[in-house]
């Protein structure tokens, strides 16, 4: 009986070890003038006022606190998957992980408790901590696909890949799925019209990318007039059925 009662508090104490912290109001000081020496077995000599002048050695309040290790209870975007032990800055850990209940302190018990089960491992929902961020950013932009005004062309995945690279997104050609309809040009009726393609990240997450066609001529006099901030303007869809996964 007694043993059973003792087990739980002991465990609680153990996980609390990482909570123990030095009091924040500690200042490490040093005497500017050493106190006078005294003889052995005699009373120490009286200190003068100057002996109570101190120099600041260390202020623990402004010291950078070390990272804290925590075990994630669920998938957290930009941090890691369930069961991962991550080391992050303390304020981020307190406010974004511990308070919302997304993580627990790194103790052997917690690691065992929140480790991924076999069933969870087989059903992968997220390929990497940053894939969702990439999806979000891809879905917010309007990608300018600049095609030639004079030469005939058919839109291919590498056109999208090159356009993405120009805007600072890097991806492989295999990730890009174009709409089923063939997009041909040059056709000035298609100028400034939208179509959607799908970008698959790590063969798992899918982003719906809004693309807008533009025509560009090598000869400067042939070029179309520049539209300022064209991505903010409303435009018409290029295809009747924009993309295979268009929601009704």
């Amino acid at each position: 009986m007694l043993k059973n009662i003792y087990v739980t508090p002991l465990n609680l104490l153990k996980s609390a070890t990482s909570l123990q912290q030095q009091v924040r109001t500690t200042f490490v000081l040093k005497r500017k003038y050493d106190p006078p020496l005294h003889k052995t077995n005699e009373k120490p000599r009286r200190m003068r006022a100057k002996n109570f002048i101190y120099e600041l050695v260390d202020d623990t309040l402004v010291k950078k606190r070390p990272n804290i290790e925590v075990v994630l209870k669920t998938f957290v975007e930009g941090v890691g998957d369930k069961g991962d032990v991550v080391s992050m800055k303390p304020h981020f850990v307190y406010n974004k992980l511990l308070l919302p209940g997304l993580a627990a302190y790194n103790t052997p018990e917690n690691v065992a408790k929140y480790a991924k089960t076999e069933a969870e491992k087989s059903t992968v929902k997220h390929s990497s901590p940053y894939a969702q961020r990439t999806v979000n950013m891809l879905e917010t932009i309007v990608l300018a696909v600049v095609m030639n005004k004079d030469e005939p062309w058919v839109l291919e995945p590498w056109h999208i890949k090159a356009s993405l690279r120009k805007t600072g997104f890097y991806c492989r050609e295999e990730c890009i799925t174009l709409p089923k309809e063939r997009i041909e040009g040059p056709d000035l009726k298609k100028e400034n019209k939208d179509f959607y393609c799908t970008v698959t990240i790590n063969k798992l997450e899918q982003a719906r990318l809004k693309c807008r066609l533009h025509h560009w001529s090598t000869d400067p006099s042939e070029r179309l007039p520049y539209v300022l901030e064209h991505w903010k303007l409303q435009s018409e869809p290029l295809l009747d059925v924009c993309s295979p996964e268009k929601t009704p």
């Binding site: 940053y130 961020r133 990439t134 600072g168 997104f169 890097y170």
Partner: peptide
């Protein structure tokens, strides 16, 4: 260093 096969360049080292 990017680990995904599609990523936003500004958060990672230059390729």
């Amino acid at each position: 260093v990017p680990k995904d096969d599609c990523y936003v360049g500004r958060y990672y080292r230059w390729p």
